[in-house]
Nucleic acid binder design. Structure first.
Length: 835
DNA sequence: AGCACGCCGACT
DNA sequence: GTCGGCGTGCTC
């Protein structure tokens, strides 16, 4: 500014602007004005509420503060400042920006998956009564009446709230209520938190004083049943000594003790006004933890832990390669304790399925309420609590799934990525399509934290880095408690079919083994990685098969639900009684899903108790836990399941694992198929024989036992697998020797989709060269939800490539397509480091 | 992503 | 004559 003469007055008049991250898929920040009274309080990383577009109000995060008024438009005002202390750290903003750049998406898309929806108040969000609300005394009179309304309604929308309170500023009101933890905010789309209610009873006020109580008991002398109920109540609520205890009452269930007589007596007492019933919302955080348990490491575990520490002195990333059942968890606990004692934070990542199991319980016993759990099965409100707990310092240690990398850590000392090879660490559907393992490494790099990658079957990429010396490597090949590795054998189904010894698709070997196990009272697990009853229906008289209308896949037959389902778009239809084409009644099921296996096993072994575990049986809230505990308590003889059973289940009594169809796992049309097959089958095998006193057995059904990977699985020969795979990867320039970016072009008109893909491919290849650009090619499922898909795969060697520049070029090619008149309607999905 | 604006078909 | 279909374009 040239106008220095008046700068002393200007200094006070300068308008403050903020650049905000909005949860909107637009590749830029948005500038808003800040009113003077807010200017002193607003900070980078704080959330604000702003008006956006014609009729929306949304939550944004402050990315920067400045005083440059925008040139081409008038900035609008920030409506409300939500956080006096930022809920988003500088590291997180750095992470958001990095992810948007690296994974080629918008920073708003990153923010959208990063923040739990409870932290994003918008004009679309709803509020409900917080079951854990503790301080009604803080409310203003207006808020008190509003809370009464909220108690009556399950939830209120933004508009409804506005109508109820009249002229008051709704965002301000919500801010106030959220701040007092009186309400919780949730996303209408997602399922809201359903508070658990307890039914309680208490004595009527008239009987609270000792003399009144005594009179009551005397009056009930002639009614012994009712007298007994009152006595029982007094035993649990000793109000003779302290009448105030009556206020809290007693749970109805405890008083009733499930006998009908006391129930009817209680009913009479309630009717006569002696007792009154009321309901209370059960607080969720009422668990108590057992005291800290001492963890004693075995010699091998001790050595491993020490070696990891030693490696960390040299390297920032260490691969901990330990076979299944070697007791990696104890080693982790040891390391976590060390890092926490040093005052740093720890993040422990696990794939979704593994997190639901015993590991959490085990860690909770050690770390108690200092440990936060970040899991998708938890309600959004609980995620918000974990987030705030990390900011406040309550949680120095969090165990969580993929999305835990977004938590506001600022002082990480250690990140553990367990089951490092798991593909579920890569987010597939909404952008950002990030890999939590890689993001974790970035976070660690910024915060000078160490990363421990754990796996029994490391990904080829990771093992390569370890071999190259870029990562430290610690291996633990001794099974915990000297349990033996299972004995794995192959069953040639082709041969058995020739000899006619198969029972349906069960080989005699598998059948006999299952029968033996049943007889001995030992448990078995049968693995089949396909849910439903059968992958499709087929007419025997014509060519008809069940096909999805919207996708190029067959409809899977689900017998239990009595419907045909598309596993891609979710479309459901009734099962036809006759062939829809020719009217024939000979419609048969083809192929085997877990449901059919369950059925056939029941026919083969009528006395066996069989349980199925797949997506369909575990959808309900606690179904997963229930199945596991049933199995654990020996109430199940044979557990049939998909991938879900491969992880984290440690059961003593399982002595047999059957892999129903190995061929299907091996012959996946993908360059990682062999690696996957090895990982998957090794993991399932690990479920067998986790006890020292006998060796578990694994039977693998295959039509071709000579397949190389099978022998490697039998020999538990990870190194052999690695040596072969790495050669192929090098020869064909696949990861770790290259990076892959997959572009998927989508449109409802196949010709448009194809044209766009061709044009895109040509412009990419013109610059990058034919050998780096593959396709366009129709994916395995060429049409999903009536959109025709074409894939383009870009291979970029690690050396001598300016990754950033290439990505910018790719982006420009896509922009060209999307501005082309005839092709602009297509959408292009970008997947960096696709799996 | 939402949301409005805008320009063409089957309905009271 | 309108209601509403979803194509296109914009949001500080």
């Amino acid at each position: 500014m040239t106008d220095t003469l008046f700068s002393y007055t200007d200094a006070e008049e300068v308008t403050l602007f903020v650049d905000l991250v909005l949860p909107i898929p637009v590749p830029r920040l948005f500038t808003y004005r800040v009113k003077r009274d807010m200017a002193a309080l607003i900070k980078i990383g704080a959330r604000v509420i702003v008006p956006f577009g014609k009729s929306r109000v949304i939550t944004a995060v402050v990315a920067s503060l400045h005083n440059h008024p925008p040139q081409n438009y008038q900035a609008r005002y920030v409506l409300e400042l939500l956080d006096e202390y930022p809920l988003v750290t500088g590291y997180q903003l750095q992470l958001f920006a990095w992810m948007a750049e690296y994974y080629m998406c918008c920073i708003g898309e990153v923010m959208n998956v990063a923040l739990p929806s409870g932290l994003k108040i918008t004009s679309q969000s709803k509020v409900q009564y917080n079951p854990d609300f503790e301080h009604p005394d803080l409310l203003t009179p207006q808020e008190v009446t509003l809370m009464e309304d909220l108690k009556k309604h399950p939830s209120l929308s933004y508009e409804e709230l506005g109508r109820l309170v009249g002229e008051v500023n709704v965002p301000t009101l919500i801010k106030s209520l959220v701040g007092k933890r009186a309400v919780i905010v949730f996303d209408e789309v997602k399922e809201k938190y359903v508070p658990k209610m307890v039914r309680k009873v208490r004595l009527h006020r008239n009987y609270e004083q000792p003399e009144q109580l005594l009179a009551l008991l005397q009056r009930l002398d002639k009614l012994p049943k009712q007298q007994e109920v009152v006595m029982r109540y007094l035993r649990h609520v000793p109000m003779q000594r302290n009448p105030a205890l009556n206020e809290q009452g007693l749970e109805k269930g405890i008083l009733n003790q499930d006998d009908e007589l006391s129930q009817s007596s209680l009913g009479t007492l309630v009717k006569n006004g002696v007792f009154e019933t009321f309901e209370l919302i059960q607080p969720r955080f009422s668990d108590t933890f057992s005291p800290q348990k001492e963890i004693v490491l075995t010699a091998a575990q001790r050595t491993a832990s020490d070696s990891i520490m030693a490696e960390f002195a040299q390297k920032n990333i260490v691969l901990f390669h330990g076979i299944t059942g070697s007791g990696k968890t104890e080693v982790y606990i040891d390391l976590i304790q060390k890092v926490l004692a040093g005052g740093s934070q720890v993040m422990y990542l696990l794939p979704e399925i593994a997190l639901t199991t015993q590991i959490v319980v085990r860690l909770q016993k050690v770390f108690g309420d200092k440990m936060g759990i970040y899991h998708s099965k938890f309600s959004d409100n609980e995620r918000v609590e974990v987030w705030k707990g990390v900011v406040s310092g309550q949680f120095q240690f969090v165990i969580g799934v993929r999305s835990a990398v977004f938590l506001p850590f600022d002082n990480l000392g250690l990140i553990i990525v367990d089951e490092e090879h798991e593909t579920s660490y890569k987010q597939h559907d909404p952008a950002p399509r990030y890999h939590a393992r890689d993001v974790a490494m970035m976070l660690a790099h910024w915060q000078q934290a160490k990363v421990l990658l754990g796996s029994a079957t490391p990904s080829i990429e990771t093992y390569y880095q370890a071999k190259q010396g870029r990562y430290g490597l610690v291996e633990l090949f001794q099974r915990y408690g000297d349990a033996n590795l299972p004995f794995i054998s192959l069953i040639n189904t082709k041969q058995e079919k020739k000899q006619k010894t198969m029972k349906n698709e069960f080989s005699s070997a598998l059948y006999n083994a299952l029968a033996d196990n049943l007889e001995r009272g030992e448990q078995s697990i049968l693995f089949q990685n396909r849910r439903g009853y059968s992958p499709y229906l087929q007419c025997e008289d014509c060519e008809w098969t069940s096909q999805c209308l919207n996708c190029a896949v067959s409809l899977t037959y689900h017998q239990r639900a009595a419907e045909l389902r598309c596993h891609y778009c979710g479309h459901k239809e009734d099962v036809p009684k006759v062939c829809p084409t020719c009217g024939s009644t000979k419609v048969r099921t083809v192929g085997y899903g877990t449901e059919k296996l369950e059925d056939q096993l029941q026919i083969l072994f009528p006395a066996a108790r069989i349980q199925r575990m797949d997506l369909d049986t575990t959808r309900a809230k606690n179904a997963y836990q229930q199945i596991i505990s049933e199995f654990e308590h020996g109430n199940v003889d044979i557990l049939v399941g998909t991938q879900m059973i491969t992880k984290g289940l440690d059961f003593d009594n399982v002595s047999l694992v059957g892999i129903f169809d190995a061929d299907r796992i091996i012959r996946w049309p993908e360059f990682r198929a062999t690696e996957r097959a090895f990982q998957m089958m090794t993991q399932v095998s690990g479920r067998a024989g986790r006890r020292a006193d006998r060796q578990g057995r694994v039977l693998i059904q295959t039509s071709d036992p000579s397949q190389v990977v099978l022998q490697k699985i039998i020999d538990n020969d990870y190194l052999g697998l690695y040596d072969e795979e790495i050669v192929e990867r090098r020869d064909f320039n696949y990861p770790p020797f290259s990076r892959l970016i997959k572009l998927t072009v989508r449109h409802t008109d196949q010709r448009v989709s194809k044209k766009a893909a061709d044009v895109l491919c040509a412009s990419l290849a013109a610059q990058l060269g034919d050998e780096r650009v593959l396709g366009p090619e129709q994916p395995l499922v060429e049409r999903i939800r009536n959109q025709f898909l074409y894939d383009i795969l870009i291979k970029l060697e690690r050396e001598k490539i300016n990754f950033k520049a290439v990505k910018a070029f790719i982006q420009s090619c896509i922009t060209d397509i999307l501005t082309d008149k005839g092709l602009r309607a297509v959408s292009v999905i970008i997947d960096v480091d696709c799996l």
